[in-house]
């Protein structure tokens, strides 16, 4: 029987677990721009543009591949403000055996889903999020019995587990786990920092910029010069540009700050990882490839992987 598959705004990847067994003939994908989600804090207007536009592009690409999608745009149906209301509306015209969703990152959303399950009387199957390299169960096993959690040890265990920069003898490549000592160069005025990736907004993004400009006047930040990627394809280009142009110096100047240089040698891919457009493993692989072909030094590659494995996975 048909399954309703709910995709949240930070789950924009076709490999997401909620889609793994989709039947395009009978199932329906539901995505929505909820008022509650967009306004529970006064999100930066560029963040709203990014999230809405990336969601809309993702929905369009699913449709172009033959998946049926019901997409509810911001304020398109002012009465549909919660997951419960949206699902109830979908259920009016069709019946489903269950709702499938990948585990939300936010506790608030998990709560909202539990409310929806009770209100709709329809089972909601919450699936694990396998985008992470370390799943929740594995992490709790690791954390058990440790009073304090230290990222460094977690990071080393993950490096070993995935054989990332590990020699055949099981030692870290280069002999050290950590090259932070090489990564604390103060900035110098003579650095030539490459301009950041700038993706020109397409018509769809332009529409969203106007929508956000009109409806979120009280929110923080400037809408000008929006240049983030909003599709997986463009996010991959940003990753590629980073590994070629910035990664080689990333390590040395990782901690440095220069007035008027917001981007420095950083990757600026956190938004793509956190929304699902990019997966952590492919970013790690891109950095490893740069190291193996001598395009980036070890301290840069190790530092970048540490941010991905340590920071992202750990928390």
């Amino acid at each position: 029987m048909s399954v309703l598959r709910l995709i949240l705004g930070d789950q924009l990847n076709e490999s997401i677990s909620s889609l793994s067994d989709i039947d395009p003939q009978h199932d329906l994908i539901v995505m929505c721009e909820l008022q509650e989600e967009a306004t529970y804090v006064k999100h930066h207007v560029k963040k709203l543009v990014f999230v809405f536009s990336a969601m809309r592009h993702f929905a369009a690409s699913l449709e172009s591949k033959g998946y049926p999608v019901r997409y509810i745009k911001w304020m398109e149906h002012p009465a549909l403000n919660t997951f419960t209301e949206v699902c109830a509306d979908v259920l009016k015209s069709r019946s489903f055996s269950k709702i499938v969703v990948t585990h939300p990152g936010e506790y608030r959303v998990l709560k909202a889903l539990q409310v929806a399950e009770a209100a709709l009387g329809l089972p909601i199957e919450i699936r694990g999020d396998d985008r992470f390299l370390c799943d929740i169960e594995e992490f709790s096993n690791w954390a058990q019995g440790r009073k304090q959690l230290r990222m460094e040890y977690f990071y080393r265990d993950m490096r070993k587990k995935y054989s990332i920069l590990i020699t055949e003898k099981g030692k870290p490549v280069g002999g050290q786990w950590n090259y932070d000592a090489d990564n604390r160069h103060p900035p110098s005025d003579t650095l030539t920092i490459p301009p950041p990736s700038h993706i020109e907004p397409d018509d769809l993004t332009q529409t969203v910029i106007e929508l956000v400009g009109l409806n979120f006047k009280a929110h923080f930040g400037s809408l000008e010069n929006f240049g983030f990627a909003v599709t997986r394809q463009d996010a991959l280009k940003v990753l590629e540009q980073f590994t070629v142009e910035r990664l080689p110096c990333f390590g040395d100047y990782q901690d440095a700050m220069l007035q008027g240089e917001p981007w420095m040698y950083h990757a600026h891919i956190g938004l793509y990882l956190n929304s699902g457009l990019l997966l952590p493993q492919e970013c790690i692989n891109a950095a490893l490839a740069a190291y193996e072909s001598n395009q980036a030094p070890l301290n840069a590659v190790e530092g970048f992987i540490r941010q991905l494995l340590g920071w992202r996975e750990y928390i």
């Binding site: 930070d10 804090v41 006064k42 999100h43 930066h44 560029k46 963040k47 990014f50 990152g105 936010e106 506790y107 608030r108 929110h219 923080f220 930040g221 983030f228 956190g270 938004l271 990882l273 956190n274 992202r312 928390i315």
Partner: peptide, 22 residues
């Protein structure tokens, strides 16, 4: 926490909360 969550394009609660509070 609310500030960090609002102002950064990559900020979701599960990223910010441990960073900011912890």
């Amino acid at each position: 926490n609310e500030w960090f969550l609002s102002v950064y394009v990559d900020a979701y609660e599960w990223v910010e909360l441990p960073n900011v509070s912890g």
